[in-house]
Design a protein around this nucleic acid. Structure first.
Lengths: 216, 216
DNA sequence: CACCGTACTATACACTGTACGTTAGGAACG
DNA sequence: CGTTCCTAACGTACAGTGTATAGTACGGTG
């Protein structure tokens, strides 16, 4: 019964392995038992470092949030906001599992607070009062989350040929009499599903609204 | 071996039962086997009406989307947009499982198309060209989805005393030196998590941006 | 050397979605 | 009326899940 040596595991190692598995197999198809197997260890070994699966999810999420770059300090505040939102979107695109990790669990963790700190600081310096800063932060965050999750979801669907075919056929089966506008705008709808342009369109709408509302 | 009579099941009945279960037990804790048990039927009986679990999810989602009211026709377009977005949010709040159903699967289904038709029609009538209408539709939809999912998530967290306590303690453990703004704005952040005011704040930002951009 | 805490293992349970093969009830037809 | 066929629902089985509980061996400390 060859026992593995004592200190083979660590939180960081488990998080790294879990992340690799999520990215290769997708967030579905990820399981504690697979992580353990990947590490050559029994499933219960992980419970020394994480109290349960959600706890591991939280750790992976916080690890990913730690990869976000700092806010650029030498540009005007709207461009700072743009930079923060775009880098969060980019991170979500690079690590598609992050979308599910963010929408499935609440905000918590050190690195997540760091992100909030950056954006809130930008807004306070731009002259927003505490309430407006907090509201704007929540609005921007949920917009980025919703828009990018949507984009990732759609991209995944397009990659699965079975689901893609089903989507196309239901789209084409819509009667032009019942849904004239949808049928008419089908090409535009398909084109505006995701992409930098679509994301920036919504972001610019929000920023335009903010410029109007900003005091002084 | 008392067989149940022949036509006890139907798609509608299964969808209704599934929905009840999701709302009482939460989307987790929902399972095909429970639905079947609730109906007094073996698990495999459901596969006559739905090819798999995701297919049932789609049906429930489409059923819920069918509950959305029609777009009011006697008000200005920004209020029409507001009405559509608010009624979608309201529906998500009344049926929390809808948030997960919408973010986990792509748009498809008859009733979902009906919603898109309503919003796209409003935007076209307001004078937006096809591309702008499509982009705006996607932006509004993803905003409502992101903001409301977030709100529901947070509300659920607040109800679970264990999770809520953990969140509070990690929040309070943030050093004021490292995260001055977050610590300073903690009360505002807690207050702006969800609620009609927060939702309308973001929605008004988007609408303000749209007014600027609207042609003619 | 003896000891003890801790990192890991082993076993077990209740559960999941669903593939496969079987059976029985209603309808259609001779 | 009898036969035949279709299909709705059944039962069984499998591979997999998260995790509770109890046991075991190793490393560092006395």
């Amino acid at each position: 019964m060859a026992r593995t040596p004592r200190n083979t595991l660590s939180s960081e190692l488990i998080v790294r392995t879990a992340l690799e598995l999520m990215e290769s197999k997708g967030t579905d198809g990820f399981s504690l038992r697979r992580v353990a197997a990947e590490l050559g260890v029994g499933p219960m070994a992980l419970y020394t470092y994480f109290r349960n699966k959600d706890d591991l999810y939280d750790a992976v999420r916080d690890h990913l949030m730690g990869l976000l770059p700092a806010v650029p300090q030498d540009v005007a505040w709207p461009d700072q906001v743009r930079a923060v939102c775009r880098s969060l979107r980019l991170l979500m695109l690079q690590h598609p599992c992050l979308a599910q990790l963010l929408s499935g669990r609440p905000l918590s963790g050190h690195e997540t607070a760091r992100v909030a700190e950056g954006l809130l600081g930008v807004l306070r310096n731009a002259g927003f009062d505490p309430e407006a800063a907090a509201r704007t932060h929540t609005t921007l965050f949920t917009y980025v989350l919703g828009a990018t999750s949507w984009e990732i979801q759609m991209a995944a669907e397009r990659r699965d040929p079975e689901a893609w075919r089903r989507l196309r056929t239901t789209m084409e089966s819509l009667s032009a009499r019942e849904f004239p506008t949808v049928v008419d705008l089908a090409p535009e709808l398909a084109r505006t599903t995701g992409g930098d342009d679509q994301f920036d369109y919504g972001l610019d709408l929000l920023l335009a609204g903010l410029e109007v509302r900003r005091p002084s």
